[in-house]
């Protein structure tokens, strides 16, 4: 399974970067989300998946007796997911506002280039 996940990480990263390199603002946002997903899986994979049980101590014990999944990457990812929700919602609204003002989805129209110095 690790192979598939590694491939998936690569795919999500390259898709994310590719979308971010487009001119469209919506695609930029989608790319950002894909990149975030890829990063989450990457962290998850680092915590040795497939060792089975969730990191929850059994009812009748006070310490782990069996193998358990690594809790640290999980709490990191949980934080990351929630934070990225905040980021995404802010970015979506920003996009909406920009669109309202410029009537364009094109990132390049935001550019004020050729400023003489």
């Amino acid at each position: 399974m690790e192979y598939l996940l590694i491939f998936l990480i690569g795919l999500l990263y390259s898709s994310g970067i590719y979308l971010m390199l487009r001119k469209s603002m919506v695609k930029l946002l989608l790319g950002l989300i894909l990149l975030g997903n890829g990063a989450n899986i990457l962290i998850f994979l680092m915590g040795d998946i497939a060792k089975g049980q969730p990191p929850i101590i059994p009812r009748d014990a006070s310490i782990f007796t069996q193998m358990y999944a690594d809790p640290v990457p999980q709490s990191l990812i949980l934080t990351a997911i929630v934070i990225s929700f905040g980021l995404q919602s802010f970015a979506i609204i920003l996009l909406k506002r920009v669109y309202q003002m410029t009537k364009s989805d094109n990132l390049d129209t935001l550019n004020t280039h050729e400023i003489d110095i």
């Binding site: 929630v82 929700f85 905040g86 919602s89 979506i92 609204i93 909406k96």
Partner: peptide, 16 residues
């Protein structure tokens, strides 16, 4: 906090 944040965001958007 999570309820407050999520609903603030979504309701503001719906309103707008």
């Amino acid at each position: 906090v999570v309820i407050g944040v999520t609903l603030t965001i979504l309701f503001t958007i719906s309103e707008s």
